[in-house]
Design a protein around this nucleic acid. Structure first.
Length: 213
DNA sequence: GCCAACGTTGGC
DNA sequence: GCCAACGTTGGC
């Protein structure tokens, strides 16, 4: 099984864990209780070693997995976990985002093919995302499986999205609340239908000249 | 490699 | 339950 996953804290706490009935009220973006059917997930395409283990997992790595499918293990942030555990559904579509790299941005699309289940790496002392406080009978971290769908027709860079986000804040355009900027550090983010559709239209357009390469 | 932003910890 | 200190994320 491939080891992968973003840079999420491996430090943990009980602070936000109270779940009397298994339901967590998760704060989504202020205006909405809408159910998201689209997401953005960050992963690092370049090798980086955490506790001696390479945490690289770019979209090419996903394509190389059996059935082009991988578990999204290693998320150690409560908001990101809650999205995966409570909100993601089979068939949801996901922008695959390359982070912590020279040119960050959206490079492909994948699909949720298995809904949340226990992230086994929390119990593995050799895994960089080992959580010594997690108990087998009371797991803390969950993951989903995603399957590669396709590359985007072109790379949609963070720089480009940033310019559009700034414009749309003024004009009230579709990317005015994009989580990439309003919740920048979240590695699993919700994408509204409107945002999804708009970003897909960028695929078939040239990148604007004003964007710094 | 720097460091701003922000999530988490833990003393009180 | 506040909040200062600390640690991590991730763009640059």
């Amino acid at each position: 099984m491939p080891t992968k996953r973003k840079r999420e804290s491996s430090k943990t706490s009980n602070t936000f864990e109270q779940e009397s009935n298994g339901v967590v009220k998760e704060k989504t973006r202020p205006s909405s209780e809408e159910e998201y059917r689209h997401w953005l997930m960050k992963s690092e395409p370049e090798s980086r070693y955490e506790n001696g283990v390479d945490v690289r997992f770019g979209i090419e790595d996903l394509k190389s997995c059996p059935d082009q499918t991988a578990c999204w293990d290693g998320v150690r942030n409560y908001q990101a976990r809650n999205f995966m555990r409570d909100k993601m559904r089979k068939g949801d579509e996901v922008f695959f985002y390359h982070s912590n790299t020279k040119k960050p941005g959206i490079c492909g699309i994948c699909e949720v093919v298995r809904e949340s289940y226990v992230d086994h790496t929390q119990f593995d002392s050799k895994d960089p995302h080992y959580d010594r406080t997690a108990k087998r009978d009371n797991p803390r971290w969950y993951m989903v499986d995603v399957k590669f769908k396709r590359m985007t027709r072109r790379f949609v860079s963070l720089a480009e999205l940033k310019v559009l986000h700034a414009e749309h804040k003024q004009s009230g355009g579709p990317l005015k609340n994009l989580s990439l900027f309003t919740r920048a550090r979240l590695s699993v983010q919700p994408i509204s239908q409107e945002e999804w559709d708009y970003i897909l239209t960028l695929e078939s357009q040239e990148e604007k000249e004003c964007v710094q390469k």
